[in-house]
Every structure is written in structure tokens, then in C-alpha cells.
């Protein structure tokens, strides 16, 4: 009561200060939320087996590479990593190849059943993969797609497509249609206008949704475990084995899974921020 009546100015300043503190605290909390598990993962991956089970934890790892080198030498890891990259890249291409035109159509054209289409696109996420995996695998074996990167990429594409469509839809919706119309009046065909005017504006966002497709594929386990055997992806390959492995190998395997994805995200972070930038405009 007394504070409010004395000096309103001081009250506002206090509120500002409190707000700043809240902001900083939230930022710190979020950073810790994200970074602490990664930090623990890396420290434990770089420690010797004894240190992993010991307590208290060391702040700096001892750079014991035993666990990690076991992984690198574990038969098939390099191949699985390579498979993961191929499948994720194919997924990325397919998801954008199909998703971006769909997103463009949704934002520019009115057609019957548009609302239903948007809803149906999301519906593909409603079916649990373990349920679909059996009939899919049967079909893949019959058609020869079984155990190929392209076959798995097709499945991952259906998972990534809803996001690709909806993200690109919001991207194209944010680019004024007048820009396109201006290009048409200046003699561009519809395709030229898209390529020369719209695409450069939308490219960062498209790249971001491609990254998103990449990570969806990278993280998917069940379909990968059922639909591929020789050409397992890294996630399927490791998760099959890691669940029952000793703790130090779990950490090493976790690091082997997380670090490539982190590097990739770091490399394309610019485009990720661009996605939000455009979407907020």
C-alpha cells in the first residue's frame, strides 16, 4: 500500500527492474534447460567408465576417449551415420518438393475443399507409426523399396510433409501478392514471377522448413528399425542396442546421436531464425 502511494515513478522503475530480472532469470533458466543435459552428455561421453558411475561428478571431463572410440569402431556405425545423412537429405528434398508447391497453392488459390485439405494434411500425423509399419513393410518388400534409403525417405516425407506444407503456406501468405502482380505487369510469366520475385524472398524460410524435415527424419526410430536392415539409420541402429547397454556407453552413444544434429543445426541457424523472422512480419 505504502509503496504505491509514495512515488508512482519509483514504482514503475521497480516494476521495470523486476521485469528485467524476470527476463534474465527466464533466459538463464531456458539456457540451462537446454544446455545442461547436453553438457552432462558430453562430459560423461568423454569420461572413463569408472568416472561415469562415480559421484560427485567432475566438472571437466577427463577426455578419456575409450567409450567414444568403442562406438566409432563398432561395426556399422559409420555406414549407419552415412545412411542417416542420405535418408534425411532425401526426406528434406521430397518434403520441400511436395510441400512448398502445396503451401503456395494454399496461400494463393481458392479451391473447393481447401479447409478440408489443410485438415487432412495434419491428419497424416494422427496415425501411430507402429500401426502403419507392418502393412508398409509388406508393401515395401513386394515393391522392392524395402531396405532402401529412398523407401525410408518416402515414409519420413509423409511425416515431415504436414510441417513443410503449413510452414511454407504461412511463408507465402506473408509475401504480398501485389509483388507478384507487379512482376506480371512488367512482363513476367507466372513461373518467372515466382522464381525471380517470390522465391528469393521465401528461400530462407523454405530452407528452415527443410531443416525441420531433416531433423524429423534424423530422429525417427520405429519405421527405420522395421523398414531397413542392412541400411539402418544411425538412430535406429543405436537405439536398438543402447537401451540395455552400460551407462558409459549410453552416454557415448547419446553424444554420437546428438553431436551431428547439433552441428547441422548450428550450420543452418541463420535460416532457422529467418523462418521466425518472416513468419512474424
Amino acid at each position: 500500500m505504502s509503496v504505491a502511494t509514495e512515488t508512482p515513478v519509483a514504482g514503475i522503475a521497480d516494476a521495470h527492474k523486476a521485469g528485467d530480472w524476470l527476463l534474465i532469470a527466464t533466459a538463464v533458466l531456458l539456457c540451462v534447460w537446454v544446455l545442461l543435459p547436453i553438457y552432462l552428455l558430453i562430459v560423461n561421453a568423454l569420461s572413463s567408465p569408472d568416472q561415469v558411475t562415480a559421484f560427485p561428478k567432475r566438472f571437466f571431463p577427463s577426455f578419456d576417449l575409450g567409450s567414444l572410440s568403442f562406438f566409432i569402431n563398432f561395426a556399422g556405425v559409420a555406414r549407419a551415420l552415412w545412411n542417416s545423412v542420405i535418408v534425411a537429405t532425401l526426406t528434406m528434398i521430397l518434403a520441400i518438393g511436395f510441400g512448398a508447391p502445396a503451401g503456395y497453392a494454399l496461400s494463393r488459390f481458392d479451391f473447393p475443399g481447401k479447409g478440408t485439405f489443410r485438415f487432412l494434411v495434419l491428419m497424416t500425423r494422427a496415425f501411430p507409426l507402429p500401426l502403419l509399419a507392418l502393412p508398409l513393410a509388406v508393401m515395401f518388400i513386394r515393391t522392392g523399396l524395402d531396405d532402401t534409403a529412398i523407401g525410408l525417405a518416402l515414409v519420413h516425407t509423409t511425416l515431415a510433409l504436414p510441417f513443410a506444407v503449413l510452414i511454407t503456406f504461412s511463408l507465402f501468405s506473408c509475401i504480398p501478392v501485389e509483388l507478384e502482380e507487379a512482376a506480371w505487369t512488367l512482363g513476367c510469366t507466372r513461373w518467372q514471377a515466382f522464381r525471380k520475385v517470390i522465391l528469393p524472398l521465401a528461400l530462407p524460410g523454405i530452407a528452415a522448413s527443410a531443416v525441420f524435415a531433416f531433423t524429423i527424419s534424423w530422429n525417427e526410430v520405429f519405421a527405420a528399425a522395421v523398414l531397413t536392415i542392412e541400411n539402418r539409420t544411425l538412430t535406429a541402429f543405436l537405439l536398438q542396442s543402447l537401451g540395455e547397454s552400460p551407462l558409459y556407453l549410453k552416454f557415448a552413444g547419446g553424444a554420437a546421436l546428438v553431436v551431428p544434429a547439433l552441428i547441422f543445426i548450428f550450420a543452418v541457424r541463420k535460416y532457422l531464425f529467418a523462418m521466425w523472422g518472416i513468419a512474424n512480419r
Binding site: L134, I141, V226
Partner: peptide, 11 residues
């Protein structure tokens, strides 16, 4: 699942 798929597919 994988085994059942192969059995159903017949190869």
C-alpha cells in the same frame, strides 16, 4: 513387426 511383414509379403 519386421518378421510378420516378411511372412505376409511372402519373401
Amino acid at each position: 513387426t519386421r518378421l510378420q511383414a516378411e511372412l505376409q509379403a511372402g519373401s
